[in-house]
Each structure stands twice: as C-alpha cells, then as structure tokens.
C-alpha cells in the first residue's frame, strides 16, 4: 500500500489535470456554468421548505438554513459516489493503453466534486450571513475544516470501493442509486438527531425514534449533525445535546478512516485486473 501511495504522489500532476478536465468539461457550452451545481440544491431546498413548512407545518424554526447546511454536504457525498461508480468504465480506452495508477480516475471525480462543494459553501455562508443574519461562533467554525476533511476521507474510501466493485458488477451502479435514495432519508437532513423544545412544542429527533440505531451505523448522521453544530450554533436552530461534538466527531472519524483504508486496499488489490475486464 505504501508503494501505491508513492506511485500516486508521482502522478499527482495527472490527478490535477484530470480534476481540471472534469471542472472545465462539465460546464463547456453552458451559460450559467458553476451556478447549475447550486441551482439543483436550491430548488430542492425551496421545494422541501414549501412542503414541510407551508403544507405540513412541520419542523424546526429557520427550516431554510437548517436544510441548507445539511444539503450541500449531502450533494457532495451523493455526486462523488455516483461519479465514482462510472469513473473506471468511462475511461476504458485510456485504461487499456497507458499505465498510470488507476485510482486517479475516481480520485479526480471526487476532487472535482470537493471543489464544487467548497464553492457552494462560500455561497451558503453569504446566504447565512447576509440573508438570514446568522452570527457565527468562531470557535465552532474552527471545527469546520476538520469535518470537511473527514467527509472527504469518507467519500474517498467509499468512492474507491464503489468504483472498484462497479468494474465487476453492473449492478453496483443501480445499487448505489437505490442506496443513495435510502440514505437521503436516513441521514438527518430533514430532521434533527436530538429532540429539542421549541417554544413549547417538541421537535422530534432521530434518537427518540425506533430507528435510533441508524445514528450508529450511518456515518452521515454524525456528519450532518456536526455541520449543523459547527455552522448554526448561535442561529436559533439548536440541535439538542450540546457538548456531544467530541463523541460525534470520534464516531465519524472511525467510519472515515476505516472506509478510506478499506476502500483503498480493495481498489489496490484488484486494480490490475481492470483492463482485462472492462
């Protein structure tokens, strides 16, 4: 594995070039360019706000920011894993001709999605600061790079595993689609992890439901909750149990590192066979 890492470092320029290719090619011949990647989450957030807030009258106050903070990391996760499932098959022709560490293909997709995510986060902060008027707690915001890093490790591990498996089984692509739509509802995007009192009415969280165990098996639950705690602490959108960040962080870190090591090991174990199979 160490040798594989060294080889990857040698090919870092290829990785950078492929990330640039992804970013450039995605919005060629489109007028809105990068803003398309914002439009999708924006439309979804608007729709969900209308459905939950105005029709069903559910949910925490400041539902918009509450959703937005969860939605951007979710979009990053979703797109990176989806792209990874097609990374190897869509580059068969180069794969069969030239040697390079095969992991640069899924890694390039993940890198491009990470850059998109970071640009979208800038927009999120502008929205929170100027539109909603959130005042940030700088001590909490210091956690943010760490959370982004852990998410990137998690996404990378899962992406490598998925892109490797997709070479062997077509089903993986469909499995990923189904799995993602399940995760979409199981990751505390629309509801908090911990219940809390909001002016007399209690907003119910995942940990008070029969599905409390999901918080222990789905790394996106601590991930999304941590994003909320880091960004929205002072924003009248409490997420209950303050002081649990440490524990959530530990849970997320274990998942992220395990996923990364496992995914990378799986990919390296099999990557030599790719040109023979695709």
């Amino acid at each position: 594995m160490l040798n594989d890492l060294r080889e990857l470092v040698r090919y870092r320029e290829l990785l950078i070039t492929l990330v640039a290719r992804d970013l450039k090619a995605r919005y060629k011949r489109s007028v809105l360019g990068f803003f398309w990647s914002l439009l999708n989450p924006l439309v979804q957030i608007a729709t969900l706000t209308v459905v939950f807030k105005m029709i069903m009258r559910y949910g925490p106050a400041n539902f918009g920011p509450f959703l937005f903070v969860a939605f951007l990391p979710w979009t990053f996760f979703q797109l990176a894993v989806m792209d990874a499932s097609t990374a190897v098959p869509s580059n068969v022709r180069i794969l069969k001709r030239v040697y390079f560490p095969r992991e640069v293909l899924p890694l390039a997709n993940i890198g491009a999605n990470l850059i998109h995510f970071l640009m979208a986060m800038v927009v999120l902060f502008a929205y929170l600061a100027f539109w909603v008027g959130v005042s940030f707690s700088w001590q909490q915001l210091l956690f943010l790079p760490l959370i982004v890093l852990l998410q990137t490790l998690l996404v990378t591990g899962l992406g490598l595993a998925v892109s490797c498996a997709s070479v062997y089984y077509r089903d993986v692509h469909y499995l990923v689609t189904v799995g993602l739509s399940l995760l979409y509802w199981a990751s505390c995007i629309f509801y908090p992890l911990y219940s809390y009192d909001q002016g007399g009415t209690v907003v119910k969280g995942l940990s008070d439901s029969p599905f409390w165990f999901v918080a222990w098996i789905n790394p996106l639950v601590p991930l999304v909750t941590l994003y909320r705690q880091a960004i929205l602490t002072n924003a009248a959108v409490p997420d209950g149990g303050m002081g649990v960040e440490g524990q959530l962080l530990a849970r997320l870190a274990v998942f992220a590192v395990a996923m990364l090591v496992g995914g990378y090991a799986l990919f390296n174990w099999r990557k030599w066979e790719f040109p023979e199979l695709t």
């Binding site: 320029e13 290829l14 950078i16 070039t17 492929l18 290719r21 450039k24 090619a25 060629k28 011949r29 022709r93 180069i94 001709r97 030239v98 390079f100």
Partner: peptide
C-alpha cells in the same frame, strides 16, 4: 494512443494537449 483515446471532445486542442501529455507521463 488510439485515435481519440485520452481526448475529451468538449475541450480545446490545447486543453487536450495537456491532458494527453499528462496521461502519457509528462509534467505540466
């Protein structure tokens, strides 16, 4: 390379030149 392998149809000649060169193992 095969005709077109390693080339991206939406990128310009220059952009593809860098892409293809890096795939072959050249530095930028």
């Amino acid at each position: 390379l095969d005709l077109g392998a390693g080339f991206h149809p939406d990128l310009t000649g220059t952009e593809n030149l860098y892409l293809n060169g890096c795939i072959l193992g050249m530095s930028r």
